[in-house]
Design a protein around this nucleic acid. Sequence first.
DNA 1: CTGGATTTCGCGGGAAAGCAGCGTTATCGC
DNA 2: GCGATAACGCTGCTTTCCCGCGAAATCCAG
Lengths: 379, 379
Amino acid sequence: MAGMNQSAVRRVNTSVILRALAVSAEPTTLTALAGRTTLSRRTIELILDSLLAAGWVTELDRVPTRGCAGRPARRYELRAEHALLAAARITTEDASAVVADVRGRILGRAHRPLRRYLDPQASLDDVATLVREALADAGGSPERLRAGALAAGGAIDDDGVVRRLVHTTRWEGVDLPTELTGRLRMPWFADNDSNLGALAERWRGVAVDHENVVWAVLGNRTGLGILIRGAVHRGLDGAAGEIVEAASMPTDSVAHRPVSWLTSPEPARRSIALDRVAAARAGEAGALAEVDELVANIASILTTLSWTVAPSLIVLGGGLEDAADVLLPRVREALRAARTPAVELRATGLGRDAALVGAVKLALDRMDTELFGPLVPSL
Amino acid sequence: MAGMNQSAVRRVNTSVILRALAVSAEPTTLTALAGRTTLSRRTIELILDSLLAAGWVTELDRVPTRGCAGRPARRYELRAEHALLAAARITTEDASAVVADVRGRILGRAHRPLRRYLDPQASLDDVATLVREALADAGGSPERLRAGALAAGGAIDDDGVVRRLVHTTRWEGVDLPTELTGRLRMPWFADNDSNLGALAERWRGVAVDHENVVWAVLGNRTGLGILIRGAVHRGLDGAAGEIVEAASMPTDSVAHRPVSWLTSPEPARRSIALDRVAAARAGEAGALAEVDELVANIASILTTLSWTVAPSLIVLGGGLEDAADVLLPRVREALRAARTPAVELRATGLGRDAALVGAVKLALDRMDTELFGPLVPSL
DNA sequence: CTGGATTTCGCGGGAAAGCAGCGTTATCGC
DNA sequence: GCGATAACGCTGCTTTCCCGCGAAATCCAG
């Protein structure tokens, strides 16, 4: 059981100040910080001194506050680029990497097809190269890069070890963080791309202010990411949200079918091509029927989730956002017809970058805990 | 954003010490406490001084530690009865109350049929009377009683306000904590009895050491309590776990059926009488068929939960435990056949007291936060 | 342009709390 | 009885936070 001492207090309070600075893009004054936190002006002053010395913060020129009296306040600004974070993503075909600042602004990118997806070591070499390229693209120096996180498909446990991948067993047991830490000489973390998508939407996307969020990719590729009280919920062996995988198991292997989706006779009908969506927009009957079928399947999964996980928001991503105008109203209607709780349904606000942005957030969170210790829950 | 100061540190550390004392029933020495916490011996000494003064702790006579050299250590013990907690429960027919110490030991009880369930005010008067009787039974004085919590059926929100009850609208909007605080002059809290059942099992029952737990009552009465990362998960409008209620809605009102359970033609078959269970034990074919039907229904719900919430343990309560020998093996077999994750399945360890014990825990947790502030998550 | 109002700065002092460490004390085993 | 052992009880020190006050810088009204 971990008690607290004065340096723990300082760690917490430093983190509070950094967060308060990160919230507003504008330069912030001491008094403003004192108003937003429960800390005294004097304490904030001292903490800012050390942050200034460490390079986390810059002090701007004083500017008279036009329109109201008083001595001009000192203005401080977070140097978001003081620490850079890397994020990478692997799919079966390609890999990509970004370098971002602690605000989540992407400063550099790199992307290429994977040479041999079935060879984990070679693929991780590719990832390391991509990260270096992204850093060069960002124009940052290697020592600025503090941590990184990898987004990948399949079941990845809390420690970033691959438990299971759909298409192959070659990756099973690969310790992604250790591999990348070895190659890039900094802390690395890893998680499933759906979990990271959810995390990203809550950080910089449409799920800001939502505590319980489900990120759903329902199509050819499937994946669910669940946030409960803001944190990724994996469940036993990472099974939480694998209802979509359960649903894609051969029908005859499932004695008790958890969702009616399972009774769908034609699993391949779960996706839809973009040109068919366009045809549906144009009103073509066959395309509309396909859309209805897809909508029914999506609604079935989401109904189950609404009665079990009961998120306040479900975010659709992974390409579904391109058909949002067609799909969303129909799915909403289906959910209403099923009398589910009034869950909000939206398309991703981050698009294809969601997993990468989520990886940046993961690296940031883990670093934060490492640097400043665990925080009080109210933060 | 709440920072920390020195008194917050003391609150946290005091709470750490109290918890450390609560863990072991045996008297504890300073050195032992220092070993279990990260605090220095000196700090623990000072904290124990104030706890001693406040009556939370007693110092026992020194006894030479037989078999090993050295000066005998001072021995401290938590006075669990220094603060008493009340818990009450309302069902449609009766109400009960207990008074317990902070270790969860039940010291006194009271029970009686409700005069008029449909009259909330009269029923709450009954509850207040029962609490006083339970306190008298425990032989405690009123000023020792620090807080209480009420367990009730139906949907109860975070603040303890009744949102919906199955059989009546009379209770809707009743602010249970405020009503009871007014009657009994101490802080009261309230929650759904299923949620409290789950909380109880994690505190003093079979779910100790499990982070993600589902408490399930599946029979004539139904209810699900979900704990995620140790805390009650309600979800949007308390819908989390209401899959069992969704399942009991009239079939034709549900367009998209979330679970195959809904397709069950005969909702009344969801329960089973104890004598039929006995008959099944004896091998009677008709009774066995009834059991199989019930098992299929239970397994269906639990399968869905295993793929969405994915708890590591599901606890069956609410009377099902009486048929555990018949039901559990069959449900386990059904889950294995459905290839669900390897979720553990057990009967309640607390029986009919589960909701009451959970209410004690709720009162304790809320009081703890009030007294000592929010703790760091690692506790 | 001058003086009062306003707002922030900058810093000293005080208090709370944790930690390190050391001499003291009580007990055990021989 | 005597050394080894383990816990006691305390002093002093450090870190950190908070309170509050005089000084400084600016605005604005007359």
